[in-house]
Computed example of a mutant assay.
Amino acid sequence: MNQPVFRFAPSSNGALHLGHAYSALLNHSMAQEEGGRFLVRIEDIDTTRCTPMLEAGILRDLEWLGLDWETPVRRQSEHFADYTEALETLVEAGLVYPSFFTRGEVRAYIAEAEAEGEAWPKDPDGVPIFPPVDQERSEAERRQRMEDGEPYAWRLDMEAACRHIGETLFWEEDGEGPEGETGIVTANPRAWGDVVIARKEIPASYHLAVVVDDALQGITHVVRGRDLIYATAVHRVLQELLKLPVPRYHHHRLVLDESGRKLSKSANDTSIASLREAGASPHDIMRMIGFELP
């Protein structure tokens, strides 16, 4: 049996908060319990917002919490070639298309449809499904726009992707699935519509980068927050299209603020660094998030 491999993969676009602490500690603890490996991966494909200084702060916080991990740390910004290769596979298979619609154009298109009485569908995050305009453009128009240097994103043609796979997708959930179930969960990728998987200047979105990284790093257990549980359906599609191994999933509870909202990096009062500077200890952090060591 292969050794279990767990990972904590923060984005270096801000400081770690209490929710990150819970996820990191849980991954580290589960890796120890399973006699497995624990990796840290820095998700920094957004090279404008992610900085070495913020990355250093993340690693400092994790070390202060008492975690250790294998080195070297994988940084997404150093592996664009891996994502480009995966994207080219999808392009050659005709499963993605260039999307030129701006956010303003999308809002206007949907507003017009709703004004005419159409109930516009939304994805599991509550965001309106992307309109079909770009998907319906001719190949000649697409090529011309790309040659003219127009900004564009690569979107997965979800309907074509699901037809290509030709079977119902599942994942193995060790936590609780979308309906509270444990065990085999049925994926519903069509609920997302045509998601962005890359941009002209960056060869991957979160969806594409995470499945490629998990495969290349041999991740066997993906342990992350329940806010990402529905995105797993998109990841399962990409894993099938790219013929990548499928890890087990565990979507853990979220650490919420006093108003019951999910913590965000903009709320600096919940950052690990600010709490440390205010005199908190690692055990204080564990108590605050309700984490108990085995």
Rank of each mutant, 00 (worst) to 15 (best):
V195P: 01
A278H: 14
F291C: 04
I285Q: 08
I272M: 00
R287P: 06
T186R: 09
D269K: 14
L208I: 08
E201Q: 14
V223H: 02
P189I: 01
A187E: 06
D214S: 08
G193N: 00
Y230M: 10
M286W: 04
I289R: 04
D284W: 05
R236I: 11
S281Y: 09
M288K: 13
G279R: 13
K262E: 04
T270Q: 12
R199K: 15
D284A: 06
A187K: 02
R261G: 15
R287W: 07
A198G: 10
K200G: 11
S274I: 15
V223R: 00
S205L: 10
Q217F: 00
D257F: 13
I272S: 00
R287C: 11
V234E: 07
Y249W: 10
D269L: 15
D214C: 08
A209F: 01
I285W: 06
A273N: 12
L254N: 04
A273V: 13
R276V: 13
D227C: 12
A215P: 05
G279C: 13
V212R: 01
R226A: 07
G225M: 05
G290T: 10
H250K: 11
A231L: 08
M288Y: 12
L216V: 07
H251L: 06
W192N: 02
S271L: 02
A215S: 11
Q217C: 02
A198T: 10
Y206D: 03
D227Q: 10
R224D: 01
A209V: 03
K243M: 04
Y230Q: 12
N268Q: 15
I285A: 07
L275T: 12
S264F: 08
S266L: 08
R199E: 12
D257Q: 14
S281Q: 11
R226W: 05
Y249T: 12
V211H: 05
P189F: 00
S205V: 09
T270S: 13
M288F: 13
G218D: 03
L242H: 02
I219V: 07
Y206G: 03
K243C: 04
V211F: 04
L263K: 10
L263T: 10
R261F: 15
H251M: 06
S266G: 10
R253D: 07
A187C: 12
Q239H: 06
V196S: 13
E258Y: 09
A204V: 13
I285F: 07
H207I: 04
D227F: 13
A233N: 05
G290K: 08
G290I: 07
V196I: 14
